[in-house]
Write a protein that binds this DNA or RNA. Structure first.
Lengths: 190, 190
DNA sequence: ACAACTATACCGTCTAGCCGGTACAGTTAC
DNA sequence: GTAACTGTACCGGCTAGACGGTATAGTTGT
């Protein structure tokens, strides 16, 4: 058990992933400023030296979350495409914060983008482009697809801005169902 | 020329406002982290002592931009209500970045909110609530009004994410006109 | 006299990153 | 089989610089 955690009865979650999780959580809950190396190390129950062993710099940590976000989003594009209730329904319902790993990673990425990190902005742009093309494929009209993407983005910022009830917060509630019905009116066929 | 800018043939802009402008610009262009007291003072061509003469703390500076944002947004709500082409047209067209004072102030406020500043989150929430009620007044249907707000929010994040052409960037271009036409389909009357 | 500054020095704290050390499993050489 | 050594995974103390804020003495136009 050379490279395993000392106390591991089970492999548990690798330290590297725990550090990434901690970094994400701090970004999501406290914004960029609160996600310091010390805070990340503490949240992951690792010393600062241990953090820097896995990620040589804060930049490396950023690259780490961004890489994971990209991988998660790539998988998600497939989920959207093959969703039983259809891509639009799936996209809209998952645009509010669900606490899924992708969700957390996406918000973390947004925080980094708001801090003007060009890598984060690039990754987010790529993800959104991917989503848009899936929706375009489904609705067969670029303008409609774009409008749907905009609503999805709007839902995201709303649930990001926390505790306000301007928009549906829960993917399963009635307001969400009404919103999806409304979006139906945008579709070319009627 | 004591309290006037040295070079002022005209009263020009008062130092206090130049400091607020500088703070906003730094927030918009470099995110929260780059907007330090030293940077703000330098950008406004004022000494650090001069900055702290007008704003005793960074918190006071934040309060300053937030107060100005709130005032600007209050005025804007009236502009939306009385827009010749109608509230929805106006709201949507001004949801992309135009470089207007309100626009810059709003983005600056968003940066602060992303840094989890509760005051900023509160001010933004109030502004959005105001906009929503103006739109509700105009379209006579809460769900439709909400969907329109979401599209507006979506446009805003898109133009915030810079240099991507997923959504219309220019309030006068054809894509914007098509988007507004599409939104027309959401309206209860047809 | 006073408001509106400039300039400079300073303080405590926070932050990123560095470095020397430790523990220990596995490898090699005899 | 055991001593010497290697690589991995960490610990925790440290430092330089940035940051928010204080302080203070001087300057300038009215």
């Amino acid at each position: 058990m050379a490279h395993m955690p000392k106390n591991a009865a089970a492999p548990s979650v690798p330290t590297r992933d725990r550090l990434l999780d901690a970094f994400e959580d701090l970004l999501v809950e406290g914004g960029e400023r609160s996600a310091t190396l010390d805070a990340v190390a503490a949240a992951a129950a690792v010393s600062k030296g241990g953090l820097l062993y896995h990620f040589a710099s804060k930049d490396a940590l950023v690259d780490g979350v961004l890489a994971r976000l990209d991988a998660l989003a790539l998988q998600d594009a497939e989920n959207i495409r093959t969703a039983p209730a259809g891509p639009v329904d799936y996209l809209i319902r998952t645009s509010v914060h669900t606490g899924s790993p992708l969700d957390r990673a996406y918000i973390a990425g947004s925080r980094l983008a708001q801090g003007r990190d060009p890598r984060a902005m690039q990754v987010l742009a790529d993800i959104r482009r991917r989503w848009l093309s899936v929706i375009e494929e489904a609705v067969h009209d670029p303008d409609t697809a774009q409008a749907i993407m905009l609503i999805s983005d709007g839902l995201y910022v709303n649930s990001s801005l926390a505790e306000n009830e301007l928009a549906p917060q829960d993917p399963t509630d009635a307001a969400m169902a009404r919103l999806i019905a409304l979006i139906g009116r945008l579709l070319p066929g009627s």
